[in-house]
């Protein structure tokens, strides 16, 4: 139930991609400071949830409502949702050749500060922050000068996402299978980065296929998403159970589509 103390409230959300129903009645309430893990089989709608919440083109909301801090999220443009404090860490971060990481981050941070009516940071102030963020995710400072994700390895891209999160200081972070393609060491760096950002004001949705990320980022709640809705919720122990037994025991019927990976 949403109340004043709810950061994100999703009610009976139905959404489709290319006229295919993916989300079929999703309900979820998240309070400030909580970490929610969303697990589930391929095609359940995990990544779709992140894209729908962030407003990506092509992800149509058919019915239902979503509020962030009491505001109607679904009415907002993509960039306004970001400015309202929603951050999506991508599963496959895209390259922007020729635009330096530093320039990109400065423009992003400036845009968000401006939207909030805050003063722009000076280049020197920002550089200091950015260098500090690099250190925290174990990226050499030279990465700030390189093109956004240009020639980065898989692990470097993911760490770069976490660095962006640190600089943007969002209220709600959605990590979309951030663990995919990472070895244990890289995953630990990413998890440490995320854990350092946990605070009573910041909530997380950790979307993952595997339980192992949750060994490092301890969730308050675990939800199982199957065929477009949450079929089971519990605490961290639910993740362990899933690890041992797989998803099959939760499904009343097989998933219809394999749209997602």
């Amino acid at each position: 139930m949403s109340n004043e103390n709810t950061l994100l409230s999703i009610k009976d959300l139905h959404a489709s991609v290319e006229e295919k129903n993916i989300l079929k009645g999703l309900n979820l309430d998240i309070k400030p400071g909580e970490v929610h893990a969303i697990m589930g089989p391929n095609g359940a709608g995990k990544s779709t949830t992140g894209y729908v919440l962030s407003g990506r083109d092509g992800y149509e909301v058919d019915s239902g409502s979503v509020t962030l801090d009491g505001e109607d999220l679904l009415e907002m443009e993509v960039e306004d949702r970001a400015r309202a404090g929603l951050f999506l860490a991508f599963q496959y971060p895209v390259e922007i050749p020729g635009v330096s990481n530093l320039e990109f981050l400065k423009v992003a941070v400036d845009s968000q500060r401006e939207a909030r009516g805050e003063e722009a940071l000076t280049s020197a102030e920002f550089l200091k922050m950015a260098k500090e963020a690099c250190k925290q995710v174990n990226l050499p400072v030279s990465f700030l000068k390189r093109g956004v994700n240009e020639g980065f390895s898989g692990g470097e891209k993911k760490r770069n996402e976490i660095m962006q999160m640190m600089l943007l200081q969002p209220k709600l972070c959605i990590l979309d299978e951030t663990d995919s393609g990472l070895d244990i060491d890289a995953m630990q760096v990413v998890a440490n980065g995320v854990n350092s950002q946990r605070s009573p004001e910041r909530s997380f949705i950790v979307v993952t296929h595997y339980q192992r990320l949750l060994d490092y980022i301890k969730p308050d709640f675990v939800h199982v998403l199957a065929d477009g809705k949450i079929v089971k919720s519990g605490d961290a122990s639910l993740a362990k159970e899933l690890e041992e037994q797989g998803y099959a025991w939760l499904q009343t019927e097989p998933t219809e589509d394999e749209l997602e990976d």
Partner: peptide, 15 residues
């Protein structure tokens, strides 16, 4: 690409 535009906008940058 749509991906590049979405990345920028998701970070709060005007289209």
């Amino acid at each position: 690409s749509d991906d590049q535009m979405f990345l920028c906008r998701q970070r709060g940058v005007d289209p």
